[in-house]
Simulated scan of single mutants.
Amino acid sequence: MDNSLATAAFAGPGIVEVAPRDGLQNEARTLSPTQRVDLIDRAVAAGARRVEAVAFVHPLRVPQMAGAEEVMSLLKRPPGVRYSGLVLNARGMERACASGVHEINYVVVAGDSFSRRNQGVGTREALAAWEGIASRAHGEGIGRSLTIAAAFGCPFEGETSEAAVAELARIGAETGAEEIVLADTIGVGAPDAVTRLLTAVREQAPEAVLRCHFHNTRNTGYANAVAAAAAGAAWLDSSLGGIGGCPFAPAATGNIATEDLVYLLRRMGLEPGIDLESAAAAGTWLGSVLGIEVPALLGRAGPFPGPAGSSTRGDE
C-alpha cells in the first residue's frame, strides 16, 4: 500500500467500499461470483477506488463468500483501483497471493471470546499470526491493513478498553501494518469515544494510516463517521445500500451506507470522490438483487437541492 493513501486527492476522507465483502457476508441470499463482480463494477463506476472485494475464508463458515478466486479472476483492473481481500490465517494468505489482490485486510478482535468465535483463536494468538502474514504480504508487494474488530465494544465481554486497542494498534504497526482500521463491529460507539480512540491510536502508531469502520446498529454510525473525519481519519468504510453485518456477532446489523455517507460529507463541504446518484442507484439495484429493501435512504429520498449535478450544500 502506497502511503499516499494518507493524503489521497480528496477534500476529506476517502471511502473504502465494503459491500462486496462485509456487506454480503451476512445476507440471507447468496450472490453468485458474477453477481458480485457486477456489484463491484457498479461501485467502481460510481467512483470507488478501494473496494473490499472478497474474503478468503472457508465456504462452510461463510458460504456467501465462496468463490473468491473466481470473483478475482473476473474483475476488470482499471488503473487506480485497488481490490482487497479479507485474510484470517496463513491458508487465506496463500489464496490471496495467488488471486492477485492489491491489499489484504487481516482482523484481530479486541476481545478473546469474540475472537475465538470469529477466527477460532484468541486475540494474542491472532496477533502473533499477523506478523508472519504481514511479512509474506510485504514480500509479495501487497498492501497491509490490520482491522481491530470490536474496538468500541464486544458482544460477549462488554466495554472494550481504549488502552488495550491502542496497544494492539502499536504492536500491529510495529509488525507490518501500514493501515490500522478501527471497527465498531456491533455499532455501540459514540462520537466522543471515536475521537479519544483515534487520538490514542495515533499516539501509539504515528506512521500508520488510520481508517474507521462503523455499523449503524444503534443509529450512531453516521455521527461516528463525522467524528472520525474531524479527528483526521484518512478513510471511512461504507457499504452500498447500507447492508452488512458479522455472522458471528449477535444483532450486528448493517454498515453505514455509501450513498448516505457521501451525501453527509458533501453537505459538510467534503468531497469523498464518489458520484452520489450512481451510488444510490447501485444501492437500489443491490436491494432488488437481494430481494430486500436496503437501509440506505438516498435511493428513496434523492439528493438535495435538485437535479443531478447541482450542489448538495445549503450555502451555495
Rank of each mutant, 00 (worst) to 15 (best):
M1P: 13
S4P: 06
L5A: 08
A6S: 10
T7N: 11
F10D: 02
P13F: 00
P13M: 00
I15G: 00
E17Y: 03
E17T: 13
R21E: 07
Q25P: 05
R29K: 15
L31T: 05
L31M: 12
V37R: 08
V37Q: 08
V44W: 10
A55S: 14
A55D: 06
P63S: 07
M65F: 10
A68D: 05
V71K: 09
S73E: 14
L74G: 12
L74N: 07
R77F: 08
Y83G: 10
S84F: 05
L86P: 12
V87G: 11
M93A: 14
A98Y: 00
V108D: 00
R116T: 15
R116Y: 07
E131S: 13
E131T: 14
A134M: 00
G139M: 07
L146D: 02
A149H: 04
F152V: 07
F152H: 01
F156N: 04
S161R: 15
E162D: 12
A169C: 09
E179S: 03
I180E: 00
T185L: 02
V188F: 05
P191G: 08
V194R: 02
T195Y: 02
T195I: 12
V201I: 05
V201A: 00
R202A: 00
P206G: 03
F214A: 07
G232D: 01
G241S: 07
I243E: 09
C246P: 04
A251V: 12
T258Y: 01
L265W: 04
R267C: 15
R267N: 11
M268P: 01
L270D: 00
L270N: 01
G273R: 04
G283Y: 04
L286D: 11
S288N: 14
S288I: 06
V294Q: 06
A301P: 03
P305L: 12
G306Q: 03
T312D: 04
R313D: 10
